[in-house]
Every structure is written in structure tokens, then in C-alpha cells.
Design a protein around this nucleic acid. Structure first.
Lengths: 237, 237
DNA sequence: GAATTAAGCTTGTTATAACAAGCTGAAAGT
DNA sequence: ACTTTCAGCTTGTTATAACAAGCTTAATTC
């Protein structure tokens, strides 16, 4: 036997998904239907379906079944964040903010090195796209800004609030990576343990003040991605 | 019972990893040791270990055991790809290229829209970081460039080769997203089905010629990430 | 000393079994 | 008509069992 049964079955079901037999939102055969169709035990059927879930092709809901996942993602432009927020609205994505934590704290050493000083405002928000938790945003903001704009920052996107008040973001340094959901983020984003996440760790600078915001946005990898345009000027970068 | 046994056990083992009891490279308890320690069946022990693997905390090898994974990632700068290649060398990362496919093909319609014309060179390479398959690179190159620099493109990084021959990349449009390995990429990158991947879908433009390269780099999410610096000039972008 | 084999350990696959927990729609009750 | 209950369906957890396949080291053979 070249391949395990569970793999053969999951590739068969995968082919049906890719060929359009099952469309996004459609239910795929239940465990018992897979057992009957392929004449295997339940544990083999479950593993085949789990393989599909693992590849992001289906999402499984207890009591309901497994459904073909949409592959559509919201695109957020790092090059023009404010325009990107308007673009998301144009894509039919309504962003709402749920505040988890907002307080003045002593920064960890690595953050102090970036923002300077010892104290900053720590904000933790969940961003919901069309009511679905999709992003956990954890950032430190300079204390004076964090204090003055507290009310607005608790319920809107950080860059929008700052820009609205004339604090213009002149530069952003970002690192984009993939991680997997631990228990905490799996609960916050309502995804399974280990679900792929795309993380944007960033520091934003204004012209007059230097570094003003530092932190990370942790988004569902299945719902979100980043675009960026890199241009080189006349001189070598 | 608030949480399943498998979850309780995996959180206990996770804490040991995070607290440093087990360091990267160390072996965690085997399935039978977990069975004995926590007095559970083998399937529960396996599931606990699988939860850790799912979170990227351990990697499991048949016949050997489960080992704490390193969390170190290679950082590749989108803002200065050539400098980034030198930086990788400085980080002790030797990049070698394994050519999978290199041929003149008729482009799919969407690629034609970007590169123009009907024919391009399709290159598929595996990039190995220190001998370990870490990235699958699939790109279309303008046909005249693909033909003239075939020998070099087969065994080096695309941008390096072009730059070396005076084809200067003036702009790059990129989309960064997370996906999960299907069978093909899991085989190419030697990772499990569903392993998180970071994908960079890009189009590179030169000043004189417009779009010259289009395609995607699919890298292991556990080994690779992107950095980018976004600056706004005097005018609003 | 080098090569081969075997024992012991490790993970991988598959089966049967039973109970738990959530979802949905129809039937029963108010 | 609205609310509650129940049956049937679905996935989730855990156990026992057995065999397969890979890894490593020690013992045996050449």
C-alpha cells in the first residue's frame, strides 16, 4: 500500500472540491457517509475529513457537519493603510472594534527600546469583519496620545484615529509572518487550536515624534492578507 | 469536565516548553511516557502531542519521537531584496537552488494580462536554506530574459541574476498571505499536509520594460518571514 | 574491523466500541 | 401562534486492540 487510506479518501474529496462538485458553503459527506461510501472505520473517515480541514479546504462544525471553506481574503495594503480601510468598506467588509483592554502600563524592555520612556498605553482590540472576529490587535501607544485619544482609540482603528487628529504616519516598519493559534488566540478568533494566523509586527513613526505605535496585529490567515508596493527611487536603496 | 483530557495534557506540556524545561531540539515525553504519566490511553496521548505539533511547538518524527521546534525564522526584506540576500548569508543561511522546471510555455490568461504577450519562461525552483527545502518559487519571466539568462536563472535567485545583468527592479507589487500545504507542496518542502506556508505573490517591474517577472514564492511559515519598510514621501500616497 | 541481524523503542494506521455534546426540525403542549 | 420537548442526525472524546513502519544500538557473523 503506497498511501494510507485516510490520505486516498481525502484526496478524492479534495478533487471534488477543486472540481466544483462541492462549492464554497456546500456540505461535504458526513463521517457516516464517508464510512459507507469508502467502507472504512469511523476513525479513518474522521482523519480524511481532518486532512481537508488541515488544508483549509473545509471547516467543521459540531452537530452540523463539514462545509467547503471560502478562499476569499480581505486584502489590506501596507503601503496605504488609510486607503485600504476605505477599500475594505468598498469590498463590503464592515470593520467593528471590540475593546479588550486599554490601560497605561510599564512597557517590556524591548518595547521601551523602541518607543522610549517607560510607560505607554497598551491597547488590545478585536477587529470584527462583518461581525466575525478576524484580528487581534495588541499595540503600545505613546502615553500622551494614548491618554488624549483614549475614547476614540478604544473603538476605532489606531491609524485612522491618529491621522484624524493630525498625527501623520510617515513610516512603518513591519514584519509579516505566519504562526499558529494557541489557546488564547483560538478562543479570541473562534478558530481551532493551531489555525494559521498572519501576524503583522509593526512600528509606526511620525515625522515630528519618531516611533509612536508599536505592536502586532494577529489575523486569521484564512481571511486576511497584506499587499505592498515597493518602489525604488532614483538612488539605490 | 471543562476541557478535554487531551487539551489539559497538551497545555501542561506546552507550559514546560515555554518555561524552558524543554529547549528547542530537546525531546518531549514519548507517547508511552505521556500515557504513563497522565494515565490515559494512547489515542489521548497522541492527540495531546498532535495539539503541540499543530501549534508549531514540536515536530514529530516517526521512530524517533517529538522534538521542541526552533522558533527562529529567516527574515527577508521586501524593501531591499538584494541586501536581504546578503543579510541571509550574514545570518548563516546558505541558499542553494534546485531546479524543478524551466521551460517556455503559453501563459495562463491572468498572467498574460500582467506580463503581456502569450509566451514566457516558467521557472520552478526549490530554495534550500542550509540544505533544507524551505521555499518553492514559481515564476514567469519575460521570454527574451528567460532565454538569454537560462543557465544562471536555473541555479540562482531571479532578482540577483537580473540585477547582475543590469536589469534593475524598479518596483515590486506583492501580496503576502498564509496558506496550508497541500500534498504537492508538502512533498516538495518535506512538511506535513496542512503545514502553514507564507506565500509571496509578486510582480516585479523594471523602469524600461514594465512587468518582467510574475509569480509566487511559497515558503515554510515556520522558517521564513518578510519585513518591509513603508515610507511616505512629502506628498500623500 | 565491517557488515548484517535482531531486539527494543518510537511513531503511524486502522478497527471496534461506547458515551458526550451540539444542531435541527418536527411533534406535542400551552 | 408560540414555546418546549424529543428524535434523529452530526461531530467530539476516550478506551482497547493489533499490526505496520521507521530508528537506534547491541550482538552476531563474516
Amino acid at each position: 500500500m503506497l498511501h494510507p487510506l485516510h490520505f486516498v479518501i481525502s484526496e478524492r474529496l479534495r478533487d471534488r472540491i477543486l472540481s466544483g462538485t462541492y462549492q464554497p458553503g456546500d456540505q461535504i459527506p458526513s463521517e457516516h457517509q464517508v464510512m459507507a461510501e469508502f467502507e472504512v472505520s469511523r476513525i479513518t473517515a474522521r482523519r480524511a475529513i481532518a486532512n481537508l480541514a488541515q488544508q483549509g479546504l473545509v471547516t467543521v462544525q459540531r452537530g452540523k457537519g463539514a462545509f467547503v471553506a471560502t478562499q476569499q481574503k480581505v486584502v489590506y495594503s501596507l503601503s496605504s493603510p488609510l486607503l485600504s480601510e476605505a477599500e475594505m468598506a468598498r469590498q463590503g467588509v464592515e470593520v467593528t472594534v471590540e475593546n479588550l483592554q486599554y490601560e497605561s502600563v510599564t512597557m517590556p524592555a524591548e518595547v521601551q527600546k523602541i518607543l522610549g520612556g517607560a510607560i505607554a498605553y497598551l491597547q488590545k482590540k478585536i477587529l470584527l469583519f462583518n461581525g466575525i472576529p478576524s484580528c487581534v490587535d495588541v499595540t503600545y501607544v505613546q502615553p500622551d496620545l494614548g491618554k488624549v485619544y483614549a475614547r476614540e482609540l478604544r473603538r476605532a482603528l489606531t491609524f485612522s484615529v491618529l491621522e484624524k487628529h493630525g498625527i501623520s504616519i510617515q513610516k512603518v516598519d513591519a514584519v509579516i509572518e505566519c504562526t499558529q493559534a494557541d489557546y488564547e488566540t483560538s478562543e479570541q478568533l473562534e478558530v481551532p487550536l493551531g489555525h494559521p494566523l498572519i501576524v503583522n509586527r509593526h512600528t509606526a513613526y511620525s515625522q515630528e515624534r519618531g516611533a509612536i505605535v508599536h505592536g502586532e496585529s494577529i489575523s486569521r490567515g484564512d481571511r486576511f492578507c497584506y499587499s505592498v508596493r515597493i518602489e525604488r527611487g532614483g538612488s539605490r536603496e
